[in-house]
């Protein structure tokens, strides 16, 4: 069988709720941008999700009629235009298939906004830490923390300069911006935990840390802040299917208790997360994912 994506027409932005919901969403890709070699941005027509989406929530997306359901963070929601923005890194078959969808075409299934919104308060001084493609999802949280009155220090880390995305946008949102690259090609050479530790050691009062990015990075941030007792919230990314609390596939252990990430999270206290378990669970389908990726790569050529 051949997978196919849907044809669709543009929908008007301004309609009553009943009209909007009865019509459903087209999920038309109104804007497609490549932020780096492997990072793609979609702005999708979905007034339904845009209405209620808040920072920290995600959508579940299916790239075609044979495809897998994968969660992607809502990086921005424009209530006026009725659109949401997702930013994803091409890492395997599903994200490859998604990246194949062209501007003007539609993503067949987009469901959301899912997950419990991030807890936004005026904590005082907050550090927002983003690694890799995680920077994209840091944006709505940084924005919300700033709007809540926090002094916001943002630390962005990437392997090398070309992977550092959204630098200007994040600079605008933050009181202070620190950049790190593993190879020193831009900003401070090293990883994000360096400047965090420095700040904590310097005696500067830090009230809240939010970290999002690859699992090893979030874990390292949590370990760095643990001795200082600074509240550190991380955004977990286990394997999901439905995203509504129905399958239990996204189970994680936090504070010794089993949680369903899709409904209880994705934000959790980084000091309480059982990281070893999460690492194992994330690798559940490693062999199958590799095979699927090779297959998809062949199709691409």
């Amino acid at each position: 069988m051949k997978p196919d994506t849907h044809d669709c027409a543009l929908t008007a932005a301004e309609r009553s709720l009943r009209e909007i919901v009865e019509a459903g969403a087209t999920n038309k890709v109104l804007r497609k941008e490549k932020l780096s070699d492997t990072i793609v941005l979609f702005e999708l027509d979905n007034p339904l999700i845009a209405r209620n989406a808040v920072a920290g929530q995600f959508v579940v997306v299916r790239p075609n009629t044979l495809g897998e359901r994968i969660p992607l963070t809502i990086s921005d929601a424009d209530k006026v235009r009725g659109t949401i923005t997702i930013i994803f890194q091409v890492v395997g078959r599903t994200t490859m298939e998604l990246a194949r969808i062209k501007e003007g075409e539609c993503v067949p299934d987009v469901c959301g906004p899912l997950g419990t919104p991030s807890e936004i308060e005026n904590y005082g001084t907050a550090i927002c830490v983003g690694g890799g493609v995680g920077i994209a999802f840091l944006r709505p949280i940084t924005k919300a923390l700033k709007e809540a009155g926090n002094e916001v220090i943002t630390i962005l880390g990437a392997r090398e300069k070309s992977l550092l995305i959204l630098e200007n946008e994040m600079r605008e949102l933050s009181d202070e911006l620190i950049l790190t690259t593993d190879d020193g090609s831009y900003g401070i050479k090293g990883v994000v935990t360096g400047p965090i530790k420095e700040m904590l050691d310097s005696g500067r009062k830090i009230d809240y840390i939010f970290a999002i990015g690859p699992m090893p990075m979030m874990r390292a941030v949590a370990e760095t802040t643990r001795p200082y007792g600074v509240k550190t919230v991380v955004s977990l990314d286990p394997i999901m299917i439905d995203g509504t609390g129905m399958c239990g596939g996204c189970r994680v252990t936090v504070g010794g208790q089993t949680k369903f990430t899709c409904v209880d999270g994705p934000d959790f206290d980084g000091h309480e997360v059982d990281w070893d378990e999460l690492k194992i669970r994330k690798a559940y389908y490693f062999a199958e994912e590799q095979a699927a990726k090779e297959m998809a790569a062949k199709e691409e050529n």
Binding site: V21, L48, D109, C111, G112, P113
Partner: peptide, 13 residues
């Protein structure tokens, strides 16, 4: 009857 998929009542609306 119309069917609208991918809508989680309680979340989407």
């Amino acid at each position: 009857a119309k069917i609208v998929k991918n809508v989680v009542i309680g979340k989407t609306v």
